[in-house]
Computed example of a mutant assay.
Amino acid sequence: MSKKQPIVIELDDAPKKSKRATPKTKAVTRDAPMSPADAPAIIDAPISGDAMQAVTQIATSRPSRLLRFFGWAAFTLLGLVISIAFWDFTSNLMARNIWLGRIALGLIAAMILACVLVVLRELGAMARLRKIDDLREKSEQIYAQGDLAAAKKHSEKIVTLLKGRDEIRWALVEYREHSDDQFDTASQMHFAENTLLLPLDQLAQKEIESAARQVATATAMIPLALADVVIALTANVRMIRRIAQVYGGRTGTFGAWRLMKAVATHLVATGAVAIGDDMIGSIAGGGVLSKLSRRFGEGVVNGALTARVGIAAMEVCRPMPFVALKRPTVTALMKNALTGFFGATR
């Protein structure tokens, strides 16, 4: 019994093989095994910190004139409608019962008084922020002019701004003891910065590390689309408010938003939104973590951008520029923030 031979059927439409074959090309058949070298390369998309980029765009965006006019008109109309409704309600109630009408009128007066007090508090907070801005600008002028008397007077204004703070009471005492030992402008300004602002800088850095850790954790753990943007915006506004309070500023609701816009404008003006030398370590850490999880990489980058916002807030809220003291870096802040996150202690 003979073995059956395979039957080969030739198709007329099959393309003819070329007589010239390139030696370097290798025919790959369906049965040939694929090697890892033949697989296409996987290109990772760069991690850019989308949440913090969105927060910066929200803070720096300014509505158009038409939108502002619409908001003013809508707010005025709403106030008019509420006023007329209160008037009709009080008039009808007084017509029905004089004592109930008087009680309602007293409650309306108390609400108006509370609104006036809130407005006055907001105006006072903005005035205090403007005072800090004036002190910082005056510090730059004193460094340029070299006036010792102006430097001592300026230092006394900073002492007045920080008076009554329990956490720096020892610093105020030390300043009072050695303020007369400075005999030139630079030494007087450096002494004031080292004595009065060094403990405040340390408190502000702790606030930045806490906010960066919160944003990094939220970005890594929460998979929702806009949740990381909302959390980053909330954490950054809270961080900026606390930094302003550390340096003697008082921020209300509108004052905090104004301060947020000032910090975002400072970031855009100085080009600090882009990746610089002080973020190379943080970005590298985010790239390493992104190999394990892209969300962790995004968290590190968003935390680093939050730290950069915090540094800009320190520069905006500080009554003196960084001259005698070194400005903190993003890498050092992120190192401390992530060290605290993983629970390591020195």
Rank of each mutant, 00 (worst) to 15 (best):
I158S: 00
F70C: 08
V268H: 09
V309G: 02
I7T: 13
W257D: 01
I47V: 07
G255V: 01
R346S: 11
K3D: 11
H178A: 05
V8H: 15
A21V: 15
K16Y: 07
S48I: 14
A216T: 05
A109Y: 09
L107R: 05
M320Y: 12
S91E: 12
L203A: 12
S91C: 02
G124A: 11
P23K: 15
G124S: 13
A256G: 03
L226Q: 06
D201H: 13
G297M: 09
V159H: 01
E10H: 09
R121E: 13
A262Q: 13
L325I: 14
L67F: 02
W72T: 10
G79Q: 04
M334S: 07
V323D: 06
G297S: 03
L196S: 01
A114L: 09
K206G: 04
R294D: 02
Q53E: 14
R30Q: 09
S61Y: 12
P33F: 15
M239C: 02
R121S: 15
L289M: 10
V263K: 08
A21G: 12
N97M: 03
L226H: 02
I283S: 03
S18A: 07
F254Y: 10
T185C: 14
L78W: 13
I168N: 03
T253P: 15
A220H: 04
G299Y: 05
Q145Y: 05
I208T: 01
L135R: 03
I158A: 01
P223Y: 10
S18H: 11
D147G: 06
D278F: 05
A54H: 11
G276P: 00
L66V: 13
G276T: 05
G252P: 12
S293Q: 12
